[in-house]
Amino acid sequence: MSETLTLRQWLLTDEPTSRRHARLASLYKGWLTLRGNTMAMFGLGILVALVLMALFAPLIAPHDPYVQNLGNRLQPLGSPGHPFGTDSLGRDILSRLIYGSRITLYIVTLVALIAPVAGLLVGTVAGYVGGWVDVILMRVTDIFLAFPRLVLALAFVAALGAGIENAVLAISLTAWPPYARMARAETLTIRASDYISAVRLQGASPVRIITRHIWPLCISSLIVRVTLDMAGIILAAAGLGFLGLGAQPPSPEWGAMISEGRRFILDHWWVATMPGLAIFTVSLAFNLLGDGLRDVLDPKEGSQ
């Protein structure tokens, strides 16, 4: 009891004793603010549940998501052994949803790693170096921004061939430009500050300045943006899956499951409804968490 109290006091101190202490303290204060936001915690809860579900899918899923049973096809909701019913090949929908969370997380994680890093790289280099490098990089960014996202992703998948990895690439290719713009804007304001001049006078190389002194300051707004973008990424991936350009059958990708259920929508509505609800829940969770994080990490951008 007393130990947790001292830990809490240690974290909430106004006079940090070391750099790490200060960093942990500010993280803890951010967490406290976030914890006060019920909706954000609700979103976080859903996402934690999703990750656990994906990790322990073989233990949770009542059936094998790939095993077909034609004698047992299109069972309605709540039928014995199949709480969410079965699809046109007699596969258990609940199990397929549980395994599908792995695919969703896989796509989201990869895109969330590729797009912001690429954007950060382009944006900070453009902002720090300036001159014609800036002009060219930003022009390229504008060109990609000018493309309608889904159509560009469609064209890329068409060129690369359908599949999960190519869907990830296509979505990343359409997702990085806003990050580049944001990182550039931040770099421009940071570049003029005194401490950057000080570091430069000490002889730090541009690479060191960008990676050690500019990137850390761009991270927090980047995280907010990524979290808010996650919903869009999920929707884009589901859209590609729905069009048959993402994950290929028999993979239990949620968008592809909707497309499959579409054929029986009027008579067997649950086949398409359940995966749609799953997509909606997860992207809603990301939006709620993103809103909360924005209030913590980036108060000036927050909704008034």
Binding site: A231, L235, A238, G239, F242, G255, I258, A272, P275, G276, I279, F280, S283, L284, F286, N287
Partner: peptide
């Protein structure tokens, strides 16, 4: 912002 348009 969270609803897949094709599903809706």
């Amino acid at each position: 912002y969270s609803m897949p348009i094709f599903w809706l």
